[in-house]
């Protein structure tokens, strides 16, 4: 049935083009109003300053590590090999010829700049974006694992599993993520790190407590999504599988979960889009994710509007990519 509806051209209702026009007008109007508002506020927009928060060219000084005399300058392609000599001690440095700062025979002491080279480095926002991406991906993976386990426990007839799952969902879903993050880091984190220290292991960084809090938070929602997905599969499927002699686990793995997964995908995507945005709260435990990086950039540059808008667009890029990816998955499983 799915194949048919996809191959048939959509029948356009009367006035279709007019309504497309209405949509375009709407977009133009909203953007226009937005632009007008930006012009009305007293604020100097300096978008040209934004690129340095993505990449910038850093100047790295090459300094001498000893006292001595420049013994020789030798050309090697674009670079010059500087040899510094004192008595029988010799050191060589490679310096880009154009940035060379010393002459042959010059007397130099420790820390003197022989020259410098330039290097492209990722800007603050890119570093933050990368961290947000890492946090989100790892938390999503654990969130799914927790959610599937929680969902299965939720529908289990074992009262311990079932009630643990219910309590977990209700507590996590009903309390602010901000508080959970603080508890994960300052309470659980302290205990775990103390324990690790007694066994002579290193501390876990704030990053991992951040991942744990996000995964745990998303896991509660995923639990409910998984439960609903499993329960939406007709009972006859379980009966057919079990009557063939499959165990509960085999039935779940081969029959129920694959079918449930398809129905779960859309709400799951919504949940993980939320998770990406929720990661912005992790700044409070000093994880330098995108929002925190943005805040730092704001305090350095005093350009809150540009930076926060850019940050918002970067989140949008992440969430939209995820959206598209899930849609692709849905389409693939629908045509199968």
């Amino acid at each position: 049935m799915n194949q048919n509806s996809q191959n048939q051209p959509a029948l356009r209702p009367p006035g279709y083009n007019m309504w497309v026009g209405v949509f375009v007008l709407f977009v133009i109007l909203v953007s226009g109003l937005f632009y007008y508002a930006t012009q009305k506020i007293e604020y100097v927009w300096r978008w040209n300053r934004m690129p340095i928060y993505f990449v910038y060219e850093d100047t790295v000084e090459i300094t001498s590590e000893m006292d001595g005399e420049v013994d020789s300058l030798e050309q090697d392609g674009d670079e010059t090999i500087v040899t510094v000599k004192e008595l029988d001690q010799i050191e060589t440095y490679r310096v880009p010829t154009t940035e060379l700062n010393v002459d042959d025979g010059e007397i130099i002491s420790i820390g003197d700049v022989l020259g410098f080279y330039r290097e492209w480095k990722p800007g603050l926002l890119v570093i933050g974006l990368w961290l947000t991406l890492q946090l989100s991906v790892i938390a999503t993976i654990f969130g799914v694992i927790i959610g599937v386990a929680g969902g299965l426990a939720r529908i289990s007839s074992n009262p311990a599993f079932k009630w643990i799952s219910i309590v977990y969902v209700e507590i996590i879903r009903g309390s602010p993520l901000m508080v959970q993050i603080l508890i994960w880091y300052f309470v659980i984190g302290t205990v775990v790190n103390d324990l690790l220290a007694t066994y002579g292991m290193g501390r876990l960084s704030a990053f991992w407590y951040g991942v744990a809090s996000l995964a745990c938070f998303a896991g509660a929602y995923v639990t409910e999504i998984v439960r609903a997905g499993i329960q939406s599969i007709h009972r006859g499927q379980t009966e057919a599988a079990r009557s063939l002699g499959m165990s509960y686990a085999q039935c779940m793995y081969y029959i129920i979960l694959p079918q449930a997964m398809r129905r779960i995908l859309p709400p799951l995507a919504g949940q993980f889009i939320s998770l990406i945005k929720d990661s912005s709260l992790l700044g409070i435990i000093a994880i330098r994710e995108l929002t925190k990086a943005g805040r730092e950039a704001v305090s350095a540059s005093l350009q809150p509007f540009e930076i926060y808008l850019v940050v918002a667009v970067l989140y949008l890029v992440l969430t939209f990519t995820l959206s598209m990816f899930v849609q692709q998955l849905e389409r693939r499983s629908a045509t199968k």
Binding site: H234, G236, Q237, E239, A240, R242, S243, Q259, R262, K336
Partner: peptide, 16 residues
């Protein structure tokens, strides 16, 4: 159950 085959009114084939 493996020794007892069962056929249902609503077929219950695995649609995936």
């Amino acid at each position: 159950r493996a020794e007892v085959g069962m056929v249902f009114q609503s077929f219950n084939l695995f649609p995936h």
